[in-house]
Design a protein around this nucleic acid. Structure first.
Lengths: 197, 197
DNA sequence: CGTCTATTTGAATGTACTCAAAAGCGGTGG
DNA sequence: CCACCGCTTTTGAGTACATTCAAATAGACG
């Protein structure tokens, strides 16, 4: 009951932007690999050349890097129905600078670089799918970039809570602080200040 | 000698990711409109529904918004060979929150929403072009987002100088400060501190 | 040349960080 | 099922980064 469900989920995701017939669906599915990671396990580490893009079907992944002072910075949290990975490393096939770690027992589907290319060759419609997917991601990253340089930590925290309440209540404050770009101590202060209102 | 050059430029840009034959080139060109803006002139203002995506062939555009305190935040500077616009507004056809203003006398090519759709219908290869274009933009926005939350203003300033020296020397410090997300006064301090080393 | 805007400089303030220590909470083994 | 251990969260004091406001100076454009 579990295995087919994964594919229903990803096909529905793809179906937002393109329509596939049965043989195309089968081909697409055949280009995917199943993967999983237990809580606290790494899916990827810096130095590796990213071999896959990931689509999470269950659980939660944290994509992050360490700066030269050893401080974590979270690029994104990927829960069910999220695509993730290190695009720069995947695209250019150069060593990644990111960690991907499971915050919960997690299941995902992966597509390798070569199957990604093959997908475009066999079913050109997928160019359209990814064009749309990236277009949307771009919109949200442009927004997040602007928020990062123009808003206070408190404002960014409130935006995150409103936009991703279902993520906020699955992660620790420490990880959320690393996503917001502030220290856990400061996030704690913000919360106590906000609760007094 | 000027008008044809514009199209050579954009065809070369497109040629990075897809190959077009002559009739495809002609069709593509026919879906573009030429535009221009004098220094200090607005190309777009908040409240408008973005009708076009822009490709700059000469000059420099500043894409920015005002926060509730009236402070400018620059999303990007677009010089020759840059694509720009307000993707969110263009994609969803909802009112923009951005200004686009010419910092120099600027010339650009535009593609309207309906021609954008038509382009995909007539020459599906363009899905691939924009898929690649957006993929690249995404990589740089992911990086910029991480820089915004993890680096000091001084570090972000140095990165900008190294990455876009040709832009840095065309814009004012005030505009650069608005891009970095700091006040012009603070950028001035950073510069004087750096020059003392 | 004059005017308008950008840039510089400085003092006072606010936002966010560092370091330290205590309190809370969750998972694990006995 | 309880007790312990390790990690997260809280709290606080002192500090660094960045802003605000004000005023002087420098530059650019008409």
């Amino acid at each position: 009951m579990d295995a087919p469900y994964k594919y229903d989920l990803i096909l529905k995701n793809v179906g937002r932007f393109i329509e596939l017939n049965d043989s195309e669906k089968d081909l697409f599915k055949s280009l995917l690999t199943e993967g999983s990671a237990k809580r606290k396990e790494f899916v990827m580490q810096p130095g590796e050349i990213t071999k896959h893009e990931y689509y999470v079907t269950k659980g939660c992944l944290k994509v992050y890097s360490l700066d030269r002072n050893g401080v974590q910075h979270v690029s994104m949290f990927a829960i069910e129905d999220f695509w993730t990975g290190d695009m720069a490393s995947f695209m250019l096939q150069q060593p990644s600078t990111y960690y991907i770690k499971a915050l919960e027992d997690t299941e995902f589907l992966m597509i390798s670089k070569s199957n990604f290319e093959r997908l475009f060759k066999e079913i050109p419609k997928f160019e359209r799918f990814y064009r749309n997917l990236y277009q949307r991601s771009l919109v949200s990253y442009v927004r997040r970039t602007n928020e990062g340089i123009s808003l206070t930590a408190e404002e960014r925290y409130e935006i995150f809570l409103n936009k991703y309440p279902h993520i906020a209540n699955r992660i620790t404050q420490k990880d959320l602080a690393a996503y917001l770009g502030i220290t856990p101590e400061f996030l704690s202060m913000i919360r106590s200040k906000m609760s007094k209102r």
